[in-house]
Simulated scan of single mutants.
Amino acid sequence: MKKLHLLLFACLIFTATAFAQSKDEKDVTAAVEFMRKAMVDGNRADLTKLAADDLSYGHSSGKIQNKAEFVEAIASGASDFVTIDLTEQTVKVVGTTAIVRHKLSAQTNDGGKPGSTVLGIMLIFQKQKGQWLLLARQAYKLPTP
């Protein structure tokens, strides 16, 4: 009976360890949430803060933006996210690089025209001077439900 309890305890510890996020994974997850909120709010200062100077921001249409273009499009309202919901997110940290994948469902109001989109997203964050910054993003279209 004692061995069974030890075995169960070991399984619980292993399971908890296997599913626990590292500090870097938690920090990257927080950076993604900061980005989501900044994009909905259109907050120029926050958008500037989260993006690396060498940002390559790819849209599902094939359009690529640099940092200044990305920030301006969101902050000016040309690309207006009313809501952004992220699901099925995974975070993989390798050294000072993090790969984030998720499904993005959004309500938009680009140019005053309401719309919705469902996209697959891959984000690359890089740790620079202790902060996780968005270095690259690529979106691809998913079928709408």
Rank of each mutant, 00 (worst) to 15 (best):
N66Y: 03
L55W: 09
I64L: 15
D53S: 15
T97H: 07
F34C: 08
G77V: 03
K63P: 01
A31Q: 00
A68Y: 07
I64A: 02
S76Q: 07
T97F: 12
D54N: 10
K37I: 11
Q65G: 00
Q89D: 02
K67G: 12
F70G: 10
D80R: 15
M35Y: 11
E69Q: 15
I84L: 10
L55V: 01
A73V: 01
D85M: 10
V94E: 15
M39S: 08
D85N: 12
M39Y: 07
S56E: 14
T97I: 15
V100M: 06
T90M: 11
G62P: 01
S61I: 04
E88M: 05
T87C: 13
R36D: 07
E69I: 02
Y57Q: 03
A38M: 04
V32S: 09
D54K: 06
V82K: 10
K67F: 06
M39L: 09
V100I: 09
L86H: 10
I99R: 14
F70S: 12
V94A: 11
V93A: 08
R36C: 06
V91Q: 12
I74V: 15
L50A: 11
E33P: 13
A51T: 09
N66V: 05
F70M: 03
A98M: 10
T90W: 05
V91K: 04
T87D: 11
T87W: 00
R44C: 02
A75N: 01
R44S: 11
E72P: 01
A78C: 00
N66R: 04
G95S: 09
K67H: 01
D85I: 09
Y57A: 01
L47H: 03
V91N: 03
S61N: 11
R101H: 10
A98R: 10
S79Q: 12
N66E: 05
K49Y: 06
V82L: 03
S56R: 11
V32F: 11
A68K: 14
N66I: 05
K63R: 14
D80K: 13
G95Y: 13
E88V: 00
T90L: 08
L50D: 07
L50W: 10
V91M: 03
G58H: 03
L50S: 14
A45D: 14
L55T: 04
D53N: 13
I64S: 04
N43Y: 08
K63G: 10
A75K: 01
A38R: 07
E72N: 14
G42C: 03
S79C: 09
A38N: 00
A98D: 12
D46T: 00
S76V: 08
A68T: 15
H102G: 08
D41V: 05
G77P: 02
S79H: 11
A31M: 01
S61K: 07
L50C: 11
G62W: 01
D41I: 14
K67E: 01
